[in-house]
Design a protein around this nucleic acid. Sequence first.
DNA 1: AACTCACCTGCAAACGTTTGCAGCTACTTC
DNA 2: GAAGTAGCTGCAAACGTTTGCAGGTGAGTT
Lengths: 345, 345
Amino acid sequence: MSSRSVTLRDVAKLAGVHPATASRALNEEARARGLVNPDTVARVMRAAQELDYHPDPVARSLKTRRSHTVGVVIPDLTNPLFPPIVRGIEDRLAQSGYVVLLGNTDNDSEREKLVLTSMRSRRVDALVLATARRRYNLLAELNLSDLPVVLVNRVVDDRAIPSVATDDVTGIGMAVAHLVALGHTRIAHVAGPQALSTGAGRHNGFLLGMEAAGLEPDPSLITFAEAFSVAEGVRCARVLLAGRNRPSAIVAGNDMLAIGCYQAIEESGLKCPADISVVGFNDIPFSNRLSPPLTSVRFPHYQVGIEAAQLVLERINTPDAPTKVLFLPPELVVRGSTARVSPVP
Amino acid sequence: MSSRSVTLRDVAKLAGVHPATASRALNEEARARGLVNPDTVARVMRAAQELDYHPDPVARSLKTRRSHTVGVVIPDLTNPLFPPIVRGIEDRLAQSGYVVLLGNTDNDSEREKLVLTSMRSRRVDALVLATARRRYNLLAELNLSDLPVVLVNRVVDDRAIPSVATDDVTGIGMAVAHLVALGHTRIAHVAGPQALSTGAGRHNGFLLGMEAAGLEPDPSLITFAEAFSVAEGVRCARVLLAGRNRPSAIVAGNDMLAIGCYQAIEESGLKCPADISVVGFNDIPFSNRLSPPLTSVRFPHYQVGIEAAQLVLERINTPDAPTKVLFLPPELVVRGSTARVSPVP
DNA sequence: AACTCACCTGCAAACGTTTGCAGCTACTTC
DNA sequence: GAAGTAGCTGCAAACGTTTGCAGGTGAGTT
């Protein structure tokens, strides 16, 4: 309708005040609105309503240097892990009038840099980083600037940056404990890439979990995947199955790797879970529809997103509050891929 | 590093020219740069380089009224259909220096309105709408304003708006033809919500496909789901299986519904595909890992995203070009959920 | 009655660009 | 050699806000 967009001047004119006063009247913050007479405020607000005035965020942003925009950078939206997280972030931020700028990096540092500078120059008020790389030179640099950053799905070693993540260690611990309770002792681990904090954390969790169960991890029963992919899962599981000391159970670094294990097991003529149990991590959608339905460590992705957004907002509003690090508790979802260890014939 | 950000003035001063000249020199477009002496251009660019100058998109946006930002609004990122599409959009747009603003609506018209005005006021240069509702009052309104809009995954009846979608009709046609070739004649359809253009289109495709095969669709073999969900799939399939004229095959409106069919079939003690064949639509990730692996109509989600972004860019650059409507060809992926019709005992 | 002070409002300068217009130089053209 | 012109560059006004500062009321204090 309103072809020419209505500006603050128009509102001010209609209300019979100076634009400055109108600006203050329309400003939520008491620091501004408190300055102007309540009657005037009412008059201005009525005028704004009448004209269907919406302040121009661009102009405002130019002046205030905040954009009510948050950058969310993830490796790959196609990874089923991320959509619920992003959704959670967006939902929470939308509530507070923020909007999210999305960027995929494929964990490529070139693209990462591109995305980051693009977002920074667009004056995002904060950044949510869901990349899982452990070594992260950009991180230090970013933290130097005054741009608030929240990490998702990873923490930085000294906990100097607010973050929300799941507790990989206890998550994997639950998986190991579950297998031990089923009588397994030859438990293998298909570990994720050790350059990613999740891969490393879960590997560590595996070692600790075994130790807690009084089992000595057998190095020949641990293989390292180069990526969290089905193909790498297949490769690693093949190695394990070909060894002379075949495991009775595999703890996979995530569900993709677990699916790879399924495939390798099938290839070798074995049955899951009759011959070998498998546990995954993440509980991706439809993992209950796999055959067999996958036992997996679930963590509340959506909630992680919500909490991350919450942290972002706190960070924006009170930048010098102490940095929180949040660990959301994982949960073991037991399904059909784990069974009591088969009696050795 | 540069705590105080470097501005155009700084560059101009270093190059010894007026800011206006610097602006023109740095502007890609020949219309501006062509005006200034090549030597000066070089000098300015060198200065910019030296100071690591990045123009402020906000200020620029205020002046030019374009933001190099595109709004992408979808119902729910959590629906596995969308991530690859969004990814495609973002990839293509990033190439051209655009950035995407993401919004979920849950097909709720309130939230839709909120998201849309939020995006509009943030001066997005264009909108990509991936909502599938057929009746869309906002659409007319949006098109009135001069904001370019591209539709994804649906077309509007009179094709007045550029869009990219898959050809639902021929997609379902392929599914029907496949089943017919396997000897099926009692073919049922679990249709998606008819308020969504995909649901309606595929239902229509089913009718046409049957007709093309010389089969008369049996109204008692068509049920309508109220949502594209597993639960609704179960409900609808139960109805079909309980009828006295049990189908030998089901064409589901999408993969969720197909999974629901799986479950209902299992419940009733039947086997897929031995007793009943099932075909889905979308070929969501891991549908090859279901049991049985799902035969489904695939369409190239990622490519859809790419093309949509392409359309957006064209639209932005040449607003009065004829409006394109793009149909990407679907493809039938035959897996284990369809089989030759079982001989009637 | 003069002073202080609190309360409100207006003025004008920003924020960092872009762009129509005008002006200047130096070159062509007759 | 004067007039016209092409080619560059500078000036200043935007774009729509926010905000420090100053001014102008009126009430309260001494």
